[in-house]
Nucleic acid binder design. Structure first.
Lengths: 210, 210
DNA sequence: ATGAAGTTGAACTTATCAGTTCAGTGTGGC
DNA sequence: GCCACACTGAACTGATAAGTTCAACTTCAT
């Protein structure tokens, strides 16, 4: 039995593998339809090992969601940060941010995160704080910060930065799930670009400099 | 018992009671967690009666979703129809439409419909056509029609009415689920009004007459 | 080497539900 | 008054999956 060694890597990073696998399976089947057996298989691990790392299916779900939310938020914040140094061409800067935010939203795992949050909100009310509170709402706030600075510098005409930020993300997110048919269709890079340009165009028509 | 029983005592309207109850329970618990027994109880009916009217849990779900989508769509279309006779004050007309659309979106059953659609999309791909295709997308198209007519009459400066319609609904829907925290908090009439005004303000700043 | 800790597969317990069956009941049509 | 038919309640079957147990195996630290 000593021969067949190759895959099963080392030690405690199995926990991460389990959480990744869990999110994948939950995303594919939803919470109730996913079974722990299958998650274990996806992670290349035995079922008792899963229970060795995480108490039960519920905490497995919560932890997997939290992990996914953390990475998604990081990507979004990085995109917004581009507005710290907008350069001369304000429109180009906003368009680039818009493109990146749309790419994040169109991403497979992001859509799954969003779907699962909506789906299980009644069963797991606490997910709202983890995914929304420390996720999406922070992104909007960061965007509001950037907009406020630009307004102060006289480069935007904005009275309420938070509202402007909310509206910009509405302009971006609304059309995207119309185009992706709620994530069942992949949106081409060309379409993303087009949506980004259109959203920024409207945004600047309303809030841009004279 | 010939007494004037205006109560549920009917023949075939039990089917309607069952579908209503089904949607209520699905909305409360999600598809997988809802059990047919409980739906029967909610409808004031015995379990075999449910199976007498609908083949199985899946079709029960589909029919309940379709019924809910139909009523939601009707309300939305009625709101959009206000733009057929906008009167002199274009801004006021748009604000009224916006208020009504937001009220629809904030509605309990509408939010549940949306949540369930997202949640079960992978298990019931055909719901996309029923709920989205014949629902939300028709509303946006109707809005695009109204906008096109207004553009033709020189009251809006819009090149692509479909895009403008998508963006207007983005401006409305984005902020609303931020405020309602995905439907877990009730949004006051005052807040709805405020959001409607803000969205229309931005919309007209971008597309309104010179 | 040796022992502790983590891992494995398989079998097992327990619970929940979808869907069915059936014998009995109320009602409306004629 | 009688029949057909929808409805009822309760009990049953079969499937699926959460969570546990256990004895055997691997890996590493010392």
């Amino acid at each position: 039995m000593s021969g067949v060694r190759a895959a099963p890597r080392g030690r405690i990073d199995k926990r991460q593998a389990i959480l990744d696998a869990a999110f994948t399976v939950f995303a594919r089947q939803g919470y109730a339809n996913a079974c722990v057996q299958e998650i274990a298989a996806e992670a290349g691990v035995a079922k008792p090992t899963v229970y060795n790392h995480l108490d039960n299916k519920e905490t497995l779900f919560r932890e997997a969601m939290a992990a996914a939310a953390t990475t998604a938020t990081a990507r979004n914040l990085a995109a917004v940060d581009l507005l710290r140094a907008p350069g001369d061409d304000l429109r180009a800067a906003f368009e680039e941010v818009a493109r990146q935010l749309l790419r994040c939203s169109a991403d497979e795992r992001s859509r799954a995160l969003w779907r699962l949050l909506n789906a299980e909100l009644t069963s797991f009310p606490d997910l709202l704080d983890v995914v929304w509170g420390e996720g999406a709402s922070r992104v909007t706030e960061a965007l509001a910060d950037r907009i406020a600075r630009l307004a102060l510098a006289g480069r935007l005409r904005v009275a309420d930065p938070s509202r402007a930020a909310e509206q910009l993300s509405g302009l971006l997110m609304g059309p995207i799930d119309s185009r992706s048919r709620l994530g069942t269709r992949t949106v081409s890079a060309a379409e993303i670009d087009e949506l980004a340009v259109a959203a920024v165009d409207t945004f600047l028509a309303a809030f841009g400099p004279r």
